[in-house]
Design a protein around this nucleic acid. Sequence first.
DNA 1: CACGCGTGGGC
DNA 2: TGCCCAAGCGT
Length: 348
Amino acid sequence: MEDTRSVKLLQDKLLEWYGRHRRQMPWRAEEGQSPDPYHAWLSEIMLQQTTVTAVKPYFEKFVKRWPNVRDLAQADQDDVMHMWAGLGYYARARNLHKCAKVVVNEYDGHFPDDHAKLLALPGVGPYTAAAISSIAFNQDYTAVDGNVERVVARFYAVKKPLSDVKKDIKEKAEHLGRGNPSPCDFTQAFMELGATICTPKSPKCVLCPWQTECEGRKKGIAESLPVKKAKSAKPKRDGQIYWVTNDKGQVLVRKRPAEGLLGGMIEFPSKGWDGRDQDIDHDDFQRIGLVKEKVRHVFTHFELSLEIVKYRFSGDLPDSAYQWYKLEKLEDLALPSVMKKVWKMAVS
DNA sequence: CACGCGTGGGC
DNA sequence: TGCCCAAGCGT
């Protein structure tokens, strides 16, 4: 690999490029401003497996509603889930809230500037701990995300499947970052290079600060890297979901179990699709009809088709997980996207 | 360590 | 249209 001198040259080139092309982000401190660890942490959790475009409005909403980690720690779990609704991977929201409480209770409301302590926080893994350490505290850690993996695989022309060489790629990324003069900027520059120049398709190599050193480009194989293994086909699942209304303009909803798929979120009663025995006893329901069009939704590991059955019912609720909710106030609930689709389809 | 875990946008 | 994905983590 490169000697120390050439690594330093690469670092300088990347930082110089970043200085000219850095994008503005709601969570990103302006040049010369000191970063807010709360903002760094919140944005990094939201950005896990999620696009910048999707995150921006959520980040704005969260910091407006909960300006600091103490405010967030004191929030109701249901409010946090409601604000997170639509962003996906809801375990992140549950861990976010849990983490805020730990920071308040264990660290007096200040994020620790210690990498190991950060790594121990709920929802904070190797990537996020390195990101916070470098971005918020300017410590010499290199955050390795999917962008960085792609850049490194191309830079060193690594042809083995990414899943087999993740560890090696990580070490190479850290080699490129180690000792750089501005860890805060370097971590973000590395990822931003992948996000805007070294893109999965049609990389803009002519604009890249590392174009003359990149082995993938020299060999003409940059765009084909990193190599990924074929994914298995997504299974399809079918289920039924019940749109149950009463004579008060209310609709029947229930909270899902705290863990697992859509954990802690609100749904309309359903059965047959999520491996849970959660069918409601609907013998007393008066069946009104069927919605012709099925609701289709793609999850990470399966495709779902839901048939909406409409019922009328005004008796007692089976248990406390269920509740009647005013139709015009449904927006106030923590409904995941798939349930918003059901809602729209049922009333259309 | 392989798998479970969401969503909306781009092509 | 169907596929790929996007600043990963927990178990």
